[in-house]
Write a protein that binds this DNA or RNA. Structure first.
Lengths: 218, 218
DNA sequence: CCGTTAGGTTACTTGCGAGTAGGCACCCCG
DNA sequence: CGGGGTGCCTACTCGCAAGTAACCTAACGG
């Protein structure tokens, strides 16, 4: 009996397709992030989206398609956020610093996006993992380019290139895993994570135990 | 009609329970590592194990129990391997070095164990992730102790402790992710991975671009 | 004011896979 | 030579969730 909800119990209002698609994707990300691909049910997605199941099939296709859509959208968001944070004319360490800050800011704000990308998509083989790996490769390249250019600047191009990709992978992995660790230790503020990593990968333990500390240039 | 396989088409030979349990666990690790928890079917496990489904239920319980058994066995194997590689009376960097080598050696030899632990168990919430996290915590503590003790040795106990766990998490994460990356770039020999990481976390980019290189003492 | 289409739904079919009931066969021990 | 226990299997039940058929209705153009 309130004023609204007067016709049939609850039939969704008519909305343009683009809006519904967004709602559905949002719901899907949420559900997939909670249960993972296989345990997530289309029924739950439809419920959370506030829309009935056939709409999903009609707009975004089968479960697989839906999941791919999620991954792609979130991966692009994430990379866009990181790239937007980087100022290409700064010194290498400052670039890295800004990239990391953007990354953790993103994870903090879009926790579910991150969960879907990192925890869920990886565990389902096939096309999904490929999709995520493509994103990671882009991230690794970003970092590798940074390493190599920093090395080249001082005449170490060759050596930097040979191990550059591997190190970049390790660094990206460290960042990812720290983000993951963070999900279970949320009391640490997000700026701190980035500086831990900077201290770790820029200075290294050897310098750290000597009392050295990395800080962003003013 | 060869000599064997003479009675009914193919009925498994009678074997003691302990042996069958091992076979089943081996098969389960293999299947879970390929498909992940949810997609793996008990039928496939039973087929790979060369044993029929009810045996699994009777020996190792339901699917969940089976998976837990796998995780626990593999986690213990892994940690045992790493701990066995560490010589506690060496310098911190050498301890780390040996630990990393053991770790990558393990991953190389028991690829499927690693996949189950890292890629699969994490993505299924609840009791499984807890199990794996318990293992990771042990690993992190191992490393954190190393960091802290290295710091304490030079009077930096306080600072090392505050960030020690986070850094250890990052380092463990870097090692894990590099292992993961390795699964898709298997052409790199395993010793190299460990030295990349040593260079990264012990020296840091700042030293590396100056041309510094970390090498194991003699 | 009527047809057509795009937004939306209910209620079904279907297949797959977890888990089980009930029974056969081998071997040891008396 | 029996029993009985332990290893092992065939052949089912049954529930859940993916995907679909068939239908309803608001709105807009002519």
């Amino acid at each position: 009996m309130t004023e609204e909800a007067r016709r049939s119990p609850e039939r969704a209002k008519r909305l343009p397709r683009a809006v519904r698609e967004k709602q559905i994707l949002d719901a899907a990300v949420q559900v997939f992030s909670r249960h993972g691909y296989h345990s997530a049910s289309m029924d739950e997605v439809s419920e959370v989206a506030g829309v009935s199941k056939p709409m999903i099939y009609s707009y975004l296709g089968a479960k697989e398609d839906l999941f791919i859509h999620c991954i792609r959208r979130e991966a692009n968001r994430l990379l866009a956020a990181v790239e937007a944070g980087i100022k290409p004319d700064l010194a290498p360490d400052m670039q890295l610093w800004h990239g990391l800050r953007s990354f953790y800011a993103f994870v903090a704000e879009y926790r579910e996006s991150w969960t879907v990308l990192h925890r869920q998509a990886m565990s389902v083989g096939g096309p999904f993992a490929d999709e995520v790996n493509a994103m990671r490769e882009r991230a690794i390249e970003l970092v590798a380019a940074l390493v190599v250019s920093a090395g080249a600047r001082r005449g170490l191009a060759e050596q930097a290139e040979s191990s550059g990709e591997g190190m970049a992978a390790a660094l990206v992995g460290a960042a990812e895993s720290l983000a993951d660790w963070w999900l279970d230790h949320s009391d640490v503020p997000d700026g701190v994570l980035a500086s831990w990593l900077m201290n770790l990968v820029w200075l290294g333990f050897n310098d750290l135990v000597e009392g050295a500390v990395w800080k962003p240039a003013e």
